[in-house]
Amino acid sequence: MKKILPFLFSFLGIFSFSQQIESFETILNDKISIRALEIYDNKVWYSGTDSKFGFVDLKNPKNQKQIRLSEKKLQFRTLAQDKSSFYAINIESPAEFFKIDKKSLTSKIVFTDTVKTAFYDALHFVNDQVAYTFSDSDKNNQLKLAVFRNGKWSMFKNNISLNEGEAAFAASNTNIASSKNYLWIATGGKASRILRMNLKDEKFEIFTTPFVQGESSQGMYSIDFSDDKFGIAVGGDYTKQDANINNIATTNDGGKTWQIQASGKNAGYTTCVKIKPNSKGQEIISVGDQHISYSSDFGKTWKKISDEKGFFVCEWVDKNTVVFAGNGKVSLMKLKF
């Protein structure tokens, strides 16, 4: 009996694990690294390495198309959209801002940042008329933002200074988030802080966090907010994939204060976090290079639901479906709740 019980408990564990995932299929295989996704017209759209941009139909994965935005081998780690177009920025200098028409998929460069240190980590639309994108700073360590307003891009003037060694990670295009009233930017490296901008007057407040920080590879990599108050941040240290101390935190006051969650009790380094729509923050999915994890209690505890490796970014398609992308693939997971 003693020999049978461990086997039985192991079997039950596998059985309960399988109940959470209804199906998990790869819908795109390609020689590409993808770190940015958008959902539109029941398709998942992506940008990635080798200047590649394209879509996969979520209902009929055989319906897919890919184009190259440039003859140069550019790397894209950003992607965002308004009603009529997609926007993507390459990470190398000069940073070229591409606008891609949703109907024709024709593209053009609408803005260029020629500064040698230009490296755009995330691009985010707060509504159909306004977007912000965050770049590594120059030697003066000043916060570097570009803003899309009235159909045009321009640099956003500010007097915010970052700490020495404080930057951001272009891991999943998700170190920027917004709600009705606020825009949040998460930094990492030698310092990992939250920069919160009031969207009405575009004034910033800066908040320190208890997140792991101090080394160039540490800090917050991804944030998401369900409203003006509740938000979650994930990250860690990409050089130490298993390290799981002080790498998940939540806020209930709009980013002013942060509470560490599941320290030492999570799957480790995490590149992207997404709150399930209409869950008010209770249900959350996250992904790292080595795992996919899920929380049903506002990020307080986490369960690893997959050991699948090589994913960097995820997005909810609907309440039961999540799309993942990363190293050479796009995959679709259907969940049971």
Rank of each mutant, 00 (worst) to 15 (best):
A80N: 10
K65M: 13
K31H: 05
S137E: 13
I176N: 06
T301G: 05
K180S: 05
R77V: 01
K59L: 08
I248C: 04
Y120L: 06
K265C: 01
R193E: 04
P210G: 00
G188A: 02
N181I: 01
S217W: 08
T114M: 07
K203L: 15
F298C: 04
G254D: 11
G326T: 06
S154M: 08
A95R: 07
V44H: 04
C314W: 00
I223W: 10
P94E: 04
F97G: 02
C314K: 04
K43G: 04
Y269L: 02
K274I: 13
A262W: 08
D242N: 15
G48T: 14
V322Y: 03
L12K: 12
A168V: 03
N247W: 06
S23F: 11
K304T: 10
G165A: 15
K319H: 15
Y132A: 14
D289V: 14
E315H: 03
I100T: 08
G268P: 10
K144A: 06
K139N: 14
Y221M: 07
D136I: 06
I34M: 08
D289F: 14
F24K: 12
T301N: 10
E164Q: 11
I4N: 06
A267I: 02
W316K: 08
I275K: 13
F15I: 12
A325E: 04
E71K: 12
Y182R: 12
K116F: 05
Y87V: 15
Y269P: 05
N266Y: 06
S154Y: 09
Q64W: 00
A146V: 11
Q213T: 12
H291I: 00
S226G: 08
I260N: 10
K83G: 07
G268Y: 07
N127V: 05
I223Y: 09
E92M: 02
A267S: 13
S135F: 06
K43L: 02
N159W: 03
T250E: 08
E71T: 07
L79I: 01
A131H: 05
G264D: 09
K240R: 15
V317W: 03
G188M: 01
V147Y: 06
K280H: 10
K73I: 00
D30K: 14
I245S: 15
Y40H: 15
G231A: 06
H291P: 02
N252H: 11
D224P: 04
C314S: 14
F230C: 10
S216Y: 12
S33E: 06
Q19R: 09
Y46D: 00
K280T: 04
T133D: 03
K102W: 13
F134D: 04
S263R: 11
V110E: 14
F211G: 09
K99P: 03
K102F: 12
F97R: 03
D128L: 01
K73H: 04
R193P: 01
F311T: 03
K73C: 00
I14K: 12
V130M: 11
S222Q: 09
T321V: 07
A233P: 10
D228N: 14
V313S: 01
V322L: 05
K102I: 09
N327K: 13
G288K: 09
D138V: 05
T271R: 06
Q75A: 11
D50E: 13
Y221W: 08
K319W: 06
T78Y: 09
I34E: 02
A325H: 04
